[in-house]
Simulated scan of single mutants.
Amino acid sequence: MPETSPTVAASPLPPLTSQAERLIELGVHELAGVPADDLRAVAEGAGPADGGALLTLHPDRAPASALAPLLRRAGKPGFVVTDMSDVDRFTPCAVDLSDAPVHVVTGLDRGDHMANWSPEEALPAIAAQGRTPLLLTEGIHWVLQQPAILERGHCFMTIGSRLRKADGALDARTPALWISNGTGRDGRERRDAPKVGWCWWGNRHTWLGFASATDRRG
């Protein structure tokens, strides 16, 4: 197993009520077909959570392809890599997610201590800690609310979302959020933009942790 380093503590998330207003400002509630007042009611009713909490929309309501362009960094919008046109087929896998349109995710951790682990190594370790890996859409919501959580050298994978192929096998790609270098098919104009991409199930990357949470409720 790779050596680990301590996780860098994130600054507190905004209150859930402020997060609701942020999503409403971006039009995410309309995208998801959730009335603004319903989103506000969930935020107000959830109450405070130790270590902060994240307000998210169900991926069936607000898919990654629609959320990614709402991300901003260095004045540039987020994007999905060109070879991940099937991004919305990456659905919850081995994650307990209700059908509720709005969820509250608690105890977020970027997973820096798992940098240089492969997804194959990280998933059982996360489960053994009694934690749950973040979904791709949850990771995008996190960056929408707290852009600074995505920083060079400390980005993260969201291995709670996987693509199941027609034969039932899982696709070897695993989704992640990081910052574009503006190389290759990204294009120079996208340098420093937030990026939704993927890595192989068995590969390690020194700059990618594994985002997880203690609980999600909805």
Score class of each variant (00 low, 15 high):
Ala125Val: 13
Ala125Pro: 08
Ala125Phe: 09
Ala125Glu: 15
Ala125Asp: 11
Ile126Phe: 13
Ile126Lys: 09
Ile126Ala: 08
Ile126Pro: 05
Ile126Val: 14
Ile126Arg: 10
Ala127Asp: 15
Ala127Pro: 09
Ala127Arg: 15
Ala127Thr: 12
Ala127Gly: 14
Ala127Asn: 14
Ala128Ile: 13
Ala128Thr: 15
Ala128Gln: 14
Gln129Phe: 14
Gln129Asn: 14
Gln129Gly: 15
Gly130Asn: 09
Gly130Ser: 14
Gly130Pro: 11
Gly130Tyr: 10
Arg131Ala: 14
Thr132Met: 11
Thr132Ile: 15
Thr132Cys: 09
Pro133Tyr: 09
Pro133Phe: 08
Pro133Arg: 07
Pro133Leu: 10
Pro133Met: 10
Pro133Thr: 13
Leu134Ala: 05
Leu134Thr: 08
Leu134Asp: 01
Leu134Glu: 00
Leu135Asn: 08
Leu135Phe: 09
Leu135Thr: 10
Leu135Ser: 06
Leu135Tyr: 10
Leu136Tyr: 05
Leu136Gln: 05
Leu136Arg: 01
Leu136Gly: 01
Leu136Val: 09
Thr137Arg: 02
Thr137Pro: 00
Glu138Phe: 07
Glu138Lys: 05
Glu138Gln: 11
Glu138Asp: 14
Glu138Gly: 06
Glu138Met: 06
Gly139Tyr: 03
Gly139Leu: 06
Gly139Cys: 10
Gly139Ile: 04
Ile140Tyr: 01
Ile140Gln: 01
Ile140Leu: 13
Ile140Ser: 01
Ile140Phe: 01
Ile140Pro: 02
His141Ser: 07
His141Asn: 02
His141Cys: 06
His141Ala: 08
His141Ile: 05
His141Leu: 02
Trp142Gln: 02
Trp142Leu: 13
Trp142Ala: 06
Trp142Ser: 03
Trp142Arg: 06
Trp142Ile: 05
Val143Thr: 09
Val143Glu: 00
Val143Met: 03
Val143Ser: 03
Val143Ala: 03
Leu144Asn: 02
Leu144Ser: 03
Leu144Ile: 13
Leu144Gly: 02
Leu144Lys: 01
Leu144Glu: 03
Gln145Lys: 01
Gln145Met: 12
Gln145Gly: 00
Gln145Asn: 10
Gln146Tyr: 02
Gln146Cys: 04
Gln146Phe: 00
Gln146Glu: 07
Gln146Asn: 05
Gln146Trp: 00
Pro147Phe: 10
Pro147Glu: 11
Pro147Gly: 06
Pro147Val: 12
Pro147Ser: 09
Ala148Asn: 11
Ala148Ile: 08
Ala148Gln: 14
Ala148Asp: 14
Ile149Met: 09
Ile149His: 04
Ile149Asn: 05
Ile149Pro: 01
Ile149Tyr: 04
Leu150Asp: 04
Leu150Ala: 01
Leu150Tyr: 00
Leu150Gly: 00
Glu151Tyr: 04
Glu151Ser: 15
Arg152Lys: 12
Arg152Cys: 08
Arg152Trp: 08
Arg152Leu: 12
Arg152Tyr: 10
Gly153Glu: 13
Gly153Ile: 13
Gly153Lys: 14
Gly153Cys: 14
Gly153Thr: 15
His154Val: 09
His154Trp: 08
His154Leu: 12
His154Met: 10
His154Ala: 15
His154Asp: 06
